[in-house]
Design a protein around this nucleic acid. Structure first.
Lengths: 129, 129
DNA sequence: CTTGACTCTATAGTCACTATAGACTTTATA
DNA sequence: TATAAAGTCTATAGTGACTATAGAGTCAAG
């Protein structure tokens, strides 16, 4: 299949697919006589793997490392484990941040009644303090 | 005070301060004879306001709008209210995403015992599916 | 045979910074 | 007083993970 079809079946934009190729995350595809990229089942799987990793917010550098590890099936997966644990720690941190953030925003939202002027606005006041 | 001192008292890096100025978020400071920026109480307050907004993940374009609104104290603060509500909605969305993310990462982490090889690794398997 | 859809490469833009180079100014030390 | 060190200046490039655009080439249908 050509890049347009791969894009549709995976939901990745065409530019993103080309970008992943450039970054060495997708293996170099064959080309037609007219220089169009040609993909098969393998590319589809590679792309789905990347998509899945990205949906977990795993950065592309780490995705690349995971792909390299996948290609060394006999090695220990301790580093895979570590990578996921780090990712989990990041997510936990971010969640904690967002909770605090949410609390403050809610507090702010409740301090403003729409009839106010900017001058009297509780939101502006709390941002100022 | 000069930019270094402002940087230390606010915790904003020097480059960030200059960046905010360039983007029109900080008012243009006076200069010494040697062309050094000179700041006073006002700049300090402006910068604290921006910092507070940023700590709430409010994008700089919106911070700019808030600053403009602050300077029109007689207008209605409905738009301030709306902006904060949108920000809250964003945060809520992101929290929902992160919850799902965390669940999957935890699931993955628990599917890997460190003694495994990459080949048998539960994490790689679940990323593949 | 031409129109339109698709693809190609190369480049610039996004956001909010961070980092660097190379020059200038000011302060501290010898 | 000379000089070294610290601070500041502007301008530019880099970050991550894309997205958008320009301008050219390819291919299938009418």
């Amino acid at each position: 299949m050509k890049i347009g079809e791969l894009s549709k079946t995976t939901g990745c934009s065409i530019q993103t697919i080309r970008y992943y190729e450039k970054e060495g995350l997708l293996s170099t595809p064959e080309r037609t006589e007219g220089n169009y990229r040609l993909y098969g089942e393998r590319a589809l799987k590679e792309l789905e793997f990347i998509k899945h990793c990205r949906s977990l917010d795993i950065p592309l550098t780490d995705v690349k490392r995971l792909i390299e590890l996948k290609n060394k099936p006999e090695e220990s997966c301790a580093s895979v484990n570590k990578l996921i644990a780090q990712q989990l720690a990041l997510v936990n941190n971010r969640m904690r941040e967002l909770k605090a953030l949410k609390a403050e925003l809610q507090q702010m939202a409740s301090s403003c009644t729409t009839e106010n002027t900017v001058e009297a606005c509780g939101i502006i006041k709390s941002l100022d303090s």
